[in-house]
Design a protein around this nucleic acid. Structure first.
Lengths: 191, 191, 191, 191
DNA sequence: CGTTAAGCGAGACGGTACGTCTCGTCTTGGC
DNA sequence: GCCAAGACGAGACGTACCGTCTCGCTTAACG
């Protein structure tokens, strides 16, 4: 039936403050790094009180997770490109564009880092971010299975692990960006 | 040649204390998690002073990095298995054994997490751990290139990124262990 | 006029905590001595955080200085006793009462000791404590000068130095309390 | 008979090192203050090891106490000046000369300060320094009692407390040096 | 149209860990 | 066996943030 009427008495949540906090968190992450990002710092930069941050988010990572959705377009295209190879290519280019936005890599690193420390955030991160992108791969693989242009031994799970593994490993451990050459090689490899 | 004479005046570093600290750090990580691992806690458990920890390591992550080398056999076999596919299989099985040791996954997650926060540690982690294992893949790929049993478009770098990407992504984001089936699929894919 | 409106935003200072800290500091000094008095100990005994102590006082000596004012009645009677000798007698008996309060001698020693180490505290100690008591002697001497029952060669400064010198030297170096006999002798000497 | 044969095996105590330590302690006190005087600092300045300092003295205050005896002539003249007033005058002038030596006031403050914190040092300080000087006053008073030129109500103890009280209070609390005028006033007062 | 309840910026609170400092002790190897 | 060097266990320092808790003020819907 959906959420209840939501008793709305008293002052409404300030959208302006919400945006100020998200923006402050995002910017501070790229400026000082996640290590030195503090709730106190976010509140100070946003010109809000600490309590206002704590009222709506549990941790600095949660602020950042929402800030990412605000600052970067996280939608994934899964339109049929004609073949599995082209579908994979489109997805990878899509990802490369996302990663090229300023601050995105820094924020992703921070979120994945936090997910290693806080089991509860790990779950929220998976639900709000990882699963959404992984779902796209499922679509591609299912379509390819129907078409028959994908190696039989390549399960959807392994396929997703390989693609996201490559992307994340580059983000987390080695610096190089995803090039057209990389994308081409992956396309040949997976089909 | 080699390291200088090393002015050796004053009391020698206590090897016993060094081991106690490394062991304490390793065990505490598996017990309470990296988040709640503190230098104070390590020193207390090791029965040492805080300063003794700080004298030899800069951060708790550095203690853990050295503890990993002490607690887990990090040596990689690169013996020729006859074919690129078998070389890859051997490497993957080798890695699976390492990851199965108690505590190793927890420590690896912690180190990679820390590497995302602290640029300096990131460099040390790459140098002391990531590069060493990556070197093994270089050996395999070079050998395969000589033999000619590897797709031409698969560079050593991409190959390493794919393999380590898969392993790390599983460790960091999805839980499943590396199965024989996964290994078989990877072997078919890369050769 | 007077102090400005005192921007009163945010939570008010807790008077209860303030008293708990002052009491803890005073008691700990008599129990373990100034040497072993620590800010950490004060906070722990008071059931407060260290920061709360540091927020309002710079050093443990400053806590103690305020605690003294709280625990001991520092007011000095300068009511006219009829003659300079009786004025001096009243002041000395007043001081003897103060010194007899439990803990006062220990705290005074601590404060004078600290004043020797920290020039800044020295100034505060003079301003908040020494000057106040010294002012009383000035009153007595001025009154005596008007009356004419005081040796001409005895300046107010020298007189104060002699009286406080005796008191402080007894407190700091020799143990004996100020007796009625001592007071009588001083009265004869100074008039 | 004196001290026993003093088993003398091994290296003799280095008199040069002893003097270096005492000098270093004395100078450092005047330079950085007692607060920032550390055993480590003394050893470093003296070019000795910490252990060598600890072997011969228990605290930095004890080093300083011995350094004072080395650096300042602590001998007290008690030669008969003909009258109690002149004896007192001679003693006070003697003290003024001592206090005028560079560093002496700083060291005396430090020692008295330390005596307030450490009961054991307090005893040593009294025995090694305070009692020696106090003895001189006893001599003067005894001689005056024989001569009869001293008020009967002025006991040796009170007399000493007054004289040392004045001197110490000036040193510890108010800055002014002992002037000839002060001395003259004291002479008139006590006789 | 005033009551009332939530949101707000501010900031004090009890805590915890930080990284540094100094203490006094304990080894070392050289003299 | 004394000495300089320096690692060691110990523990307080003053700082930074944590997450919570008042404060007094502002801003609506409700009655």
């Amino acid at each position: 039936m959906g959420t209840p009427p939501e008793q709305t008495r008293g002052r409404k949540r300030s959208e302006q403050t919400r945006l100020a906090i998200l923006t402050a968190a995002y910017e501070l992450t790229t400026e000082v790094g996640y290590q030195d990002l503090t709730i106190e710092g976010i509140a100070a930069r946003a010109g809000s009180g600490k309590q206002t941050v704590y009222r709506w988010w549990s941790t600095k990572a949660d602020v950042l997770l929402e800030a990412l959705a605000l600052k970067a377009d996280l939608s994934v295209t899964t339109a049929d490109q004609g073949s599995f190879a082209d579908d994979v290519g489109a997805f990878l280019r899509d990802s490369a564009v996302l990663l090229a936005r300023p601050g995105v890599v820094a924020v992703l690193r921070s979120l994945m880092s936090e997910a290693q420390r806080d089991q509860d955030f790990r779950d929220r991160f998976q639900r709000e971010f990882l699963h959404k992108r992984r779902g796209a791969i499922d679509v591609l693989v299912t379509r390819a299975a129907r078409r028959g242009d994908k190696p039989a031994f390549l399960s959807a799970d392994l396929c997703a692990d390989l693609i996201f593994g490559l992307i994340w490993y580059r983000v987390l451990a080695t610096e190089p960006k995803l090039t057209d050459q990389d994308i081409a090689a992956l396309q040949r490899l997976l089909s």
